[in-house]
């Protein structure tokens, strides 16, 4: 098999993984496609060593994560500012992190519909909650690594993720209620 065909197969095998990482972090499919392309261009440069490596999938995910975060970094200052404002706004009030969810949340749906609703709810989260939440729950990074990657404090990472979970659960519950209402 020649190298071009092998690389085409390689792209086909890993494109969903790379695209998922980028799309969930960026919340935008067109930007995620740009990032995925860049990831594979970098993979092509070291294809000789990558193609037989068992760490290949991990390498691709790491590069996709780095590139997506770099892509977001131009908005990082604004993102930090919004996040700080949100923290300040909530500071004087009793923190309400309890959330009521239907007992059947996502359970009465088929796999495709469950996945679709989860992705839609993730996309609807504000960036300063979605990014740390995706890094923690989908990319399985630790709080400390997320804080280092985003250049924010550990406490802020934890609070953003907690708020992200609340917002995600509410969004999923709302999506369910909305679609039941229209059906």
């Amino acid at each position: 098999m020649n190298a071009a065909v092998e690389f085409a197969d390689f792209v086909l095998a890993y494109q969903d993984t790379v695209f998922s990482t980028a799309a969930r972090l960026l919340g935008d499919d067109a930007q995620a496609e740009d990032v995925a392309q860049e990831v594979f261009l970098r993979a092509y440069e070291r294809f000789e060593s990558l193609r037989d490596s068992p760490a290949c999938g991990g390498w691709l995910k790491t590069v996709a994560r780095h590139l997506a975060l770099n892509h977001l970094s131009r908005y990082r200052r604004r993102w930090r500012m919004f996040s700080e404002v949100a923290t300040a706004d909530d500071g004087g009030e009793a923190q309400e992190f309890d959330v009521a969810v239907p007992d059947t949340l996502l359970r009465d749906l088929d796999e495709h519909e469950r996945a679709r609703r989860t992705e839609a709810a993730l996309r609807a989260l504000p960036e300063h909650q979605r990014v740390p939440l995706v890094l923690f729950h989908f990319e399985e990074m630790s709080y400390a690594d997320i804080a280092a990657a985003l250049g924010i404090s550990l406490a802020k990472v934890k609070i953003d993720i907690l708020r992200g979970r609340v917002a995600l659960a509410r969004a999923l519950a709302d999506l369910g209620a909305g679609e039941r209402g229209t059906s």
């Binding site: 085409a8 792209v11 494109q15 695209f19 799309a23 496609e33 995925a36 992705e119 999923l172």
Partner: peptide
């Protein structure tokens, strides 16, 4: 929810675009 979430499907154009 995150653990049971399958990967997003990449757009059909991605492979051709990369190549």
């Amino acid at each position: 929810i995150a653990r049971s979430q399958p990967p997003r499907r990449a757009p059909a154009t991605l492979q051709a675009r990369v190549l």
